[in-house]
Amino acid sequence: MKPLKEFTIPFVGLKLGTHHFNFKIEQAFFEYFEYEDFNNSNINVDVELVKNTTLLELHFTISGTVNINCDVTNEPYDQVINNEFDLVVNFGDEYNDENIDILILPHGAYEVNIQQYIYELIVLAVPIKRIHPGVEDGTLSSDILEKLKELSPELDDEKKKNEDIDPRWNTLKKLLTDK
């Protein structure tokens, strides 16, 4: 998979200090990764790069919305996501990304590609259980919700009212209270 050029930061020509980069993430970005869970996306990524003499520090901040389907009703809704991540880029003999927070680039590297970090940061910001806000507050009306209510088991209080208790049990209960 070839890296996307717009997510490659050439750091060789940058002065020592802090530099800011902004990226707008839309659905085409996830199509590149063949990730199909999002119907649509509108995400802003702010990257603050601090260049030091021996290493680079990157601070990622994402905010925006992704349109996903609810796990309960399969209705699409916009999920707000926010996430942050810090990455240290150091230099060594060979490329190494085994550590989550540290990326080692070979000596002589002049750019860093951050597309994989942005992708993982966005995907991990989405909750595991995706529930439409209308389901939680009861404002969503859906055929699936109506069917779920119809098929759900009755509450315990209603069951007790509907069941006829065997009179022998009442006699046994008197034994407990007659002490």
Rank of each mutant, 00 (worst) to 15 (best):
K5G: 07
K5D: 10
E6V: 15
E6G: 04
F7N: 02
T8I: 14
T8R: 04
I9E: 03
I9D: 01
V12E: 00
V12S: 04
V12L: 03
G13D: 06
L14D: 01
L14H: 03
L16G: 10
L16V: 12
L16W: 14
G17F: 04
G17Y: 02
G17P: 07
T18I: 12
H19M: 03
H19I: 08
F23T: 02
F23G: 00
K24L: 05
K24R: 11
E26L: 01
E26P: 02
Q27G: 04
Q27T: 13
A28T: 15
A28Y: 05
F29L: 09
F29R: 06
F29I: 14
F30Y: 08
F30W: 03
E31Q: 11
Y32C: 13
Y32E: 11
F33P: 10
F33W: 13
E34N: 13
E34P: 15
Y35S: 12
Y35D: 13
Y35P: 03
D37E: 13
F38Q: 12
F38C: 10
N39H: 08
N39V: 10
S41V: 06
I43F: 09
N44R: 13
V45Q: 01
V45C: 02
D46L: 10
D46F: 12
D46M: 08
D46C: 05
V47K: 06
V47N: 06
L49R: 04
L55Y: 14
L56Q: 03
L56M: 03
L56C: 04
E57N: 11
L58R: 09
L58C: 07
H59R: 15
H59Q: 14
F60L: 09
I62F: 13
